[in-house]
Design a protein around this nucleic acid. Structure first.
Length: 454
DNA sequence: TTTTGAGTTGTTCGA
DNA sequence: GTCGAACAACTCAAA
């Protein structure tokens, strides 16, 4: 009798370097590959991200000889039915560690479906890297990075020579038809696109990555974030070709940030929505109103901020440098809570990752893992002059300013024709709001609880 | 236990 | 316009 194993795809939509797929092939004569359209995932996914996922599923389906089963419904029911229908004796997965994935997999197991975990979306699984002195997790990035490097990771897993896949009923091939909103253009999804882009980056971007990655107007980043989010490529594959040069080390460090934030969230599950540093919950914040709306629409009157927000709306992606700038603006110029921005990013980013998004926001808000002794307040004008020094980024996304050449585009208020196309006036005065933000920080410092007495 | 060194991404001021 | 120092002095990691 043919033995079969189910491979439940989630955030691992690839066939290369896929230990769980290899384990499923090893255990069964045939595999039953399935992606379950979880109503909660669909509800929380923004339209750009869902459109990307739809394409990614079709690419994966191609790699599996058009036999991927795509089924809408409750995971427990779907898996029970598949196991019964195909007489499958195992369900294979890549492990997950964030709040939703952990709870979902626990629920499935509690319902009597045993899950075989092989591999994870990380080079080093969350929880593995700990301080040797007391076995507790790291709270500062750099020591984590050193220990993470010492821990090390496996070489990429071999791509299977052949994947024996069971035939799927057409009734179980419900590929959704998620449409992109009008005027939005997103990058290509899928494993082949991921590998191709990484090859392009290795050839054209990696050697200058340490400098180029910060410049918003050029294609200086690897653009692997969406591919990593859906597991179209594994971080091991990105780490494998890296050497010891400065640029290579900086790229390795970016991959390690993703792993650090996954580790921090794994150990502090509540920080998806709550303050990592609890005293920041006591800070005075303003209520979202017109200024928040202006931020969302890219109409703050600060060109570098507005360009970034419009890039997000148009492409479902934002340059890393400007993610920090717009986050700092929301929290420190508009005095709004980071969760508002976090939710907006969640809605619009294709590459949305719960750990990186929540902790990226908390880092900028000051409530996260930033180890700096200062309270950083980004100056949106200076950041624009430094990281978009010829103004290309601003002009690309803010057509009202396209008539201003060079770096002058960062300060339309200094230009005689700065507002001729109705570019909005600045909604706040950065210098004043910086002082206000520091004053609010002082308030929570003063209210810090006294250390316990003996 | 105590001490020492160090920390992604910054800004502003004044020479 | 450029560059180095000051900012304000915290918290974590490791010796």
């Amino acid at each position: 009798m043919t033995s079969r194993s189910v491979l439940w795809f989630r955030r691992d939509l690839r066939i290369g370097d896929h230990p769980a797929l290899n384990a499923a092939i090893e255990q069964g004569d045939e595999i039953v590959p399935v992606f379950i359209l979880d109503p909660k995932l669909i509800k929380s996914g923004g339209s750009k991200r869902l459109a990307y996922l739809g394409q990614s599923l079709r690419e994966l389906d191609n790699s599996l000889g058009n036999k991927l089963q795509v089924i809408a419904g409750d995971q427990i029911e779907v898996l029970h039915e598949l196991k019964k229908k195909y007489n499958a004796n195992s369900v294979h997965i890549s492990a997950e560690y964030e709040p939703y994935g952990l709870a979902r997999d626990a629920k499935v197991e509690a319902a009597g479906i045993e899950l075989t975990r092989t591999g994870s979306p990380y080079a080093v699984a969350p929880g593995r890297v700990r301080k040797p002195s007391d076995d507790t997790p790291y709270k500062v990035y750099t020591p984590f990075y050193r220990a993470w490097c010492v821990h090390g990771w496996r070489a990429p897993a071999p791509t299977p020579k052949a994947i024996p896949v069971v035939d799927a009923d057409s009734a179980n091939r419900n590929f959704p038809d998620w449409k992109l909103p009008e005027g939005v253009r997103i990058t290509s999804a899928g494993e082949a696109a991921a590998l191709e882009r990484f090859k392009h980056f290795q050839k054209n971007g990696l050697a200058n990555y340490d400098e180029a990655r910060n410049l918003a107007g050029i294609d200086g980043t690897s653009k692997m974030s969406a591919h990593l989010k859906f597991g179209e490529i594994h971080p091991r594959t990105l780490l494998a070709p890296l050497g010891d040069s400065k640029a290579h080390d900086v790229y390795r460090k970016e991959i390690a940030w993703r792993e650090f934030y996954a580790d921090v969230l794994f150990h502090n599950q509540h920080t998806e929505t709550d303050y990592y540093a609890p005293q920041f919950a006591k800070m005075r914040y303003d209520k979202p109103a017109d200024q928040f709306k202006a931020w969302c629409e890219g109409k703050t009157g600060y060109p570098f901020v507005d360009a970034a927000m419009r890039q997000l709306l148009k492409e479902g992606w934002m340059h890393n440098r400007t993610r920090m700038v717009v986050a700092s603006f929301l929290v420190k110029d508009l005095h709004l809570e980071w969760q508002l921005g976090e939710r907006f990013f969640r809605e619009h980013l294709i590459d949305y990752d719960v750990a990186s998004n929540a902790h990226g926001w908390q880092w900028t808000a000051g409530s996260g893992t930033d180890a700096s002794p200062y309270y950083r307040v980004f100056n949106p004008i200076e950041q624009g002059k430094r990281f978009d020094e010829n103004g290309d980024y601003v002009r690309r996304y803010v057509p009202e300013l396209s008539h201003i050449s060079g770096v002058a585009v960062q300060e339309p208020w200094e230009h005689p024709d700065g507002y001729k196309n109705n570019y909005p006036k600045r909604i706040v005065d950065h210098a004043l709001e910086r002082v206000e933000s520091l004053a609010r920080l002082d308030e929570i410092k003063a209210s810090k609880p006294l250390p316990p007495t003996k």
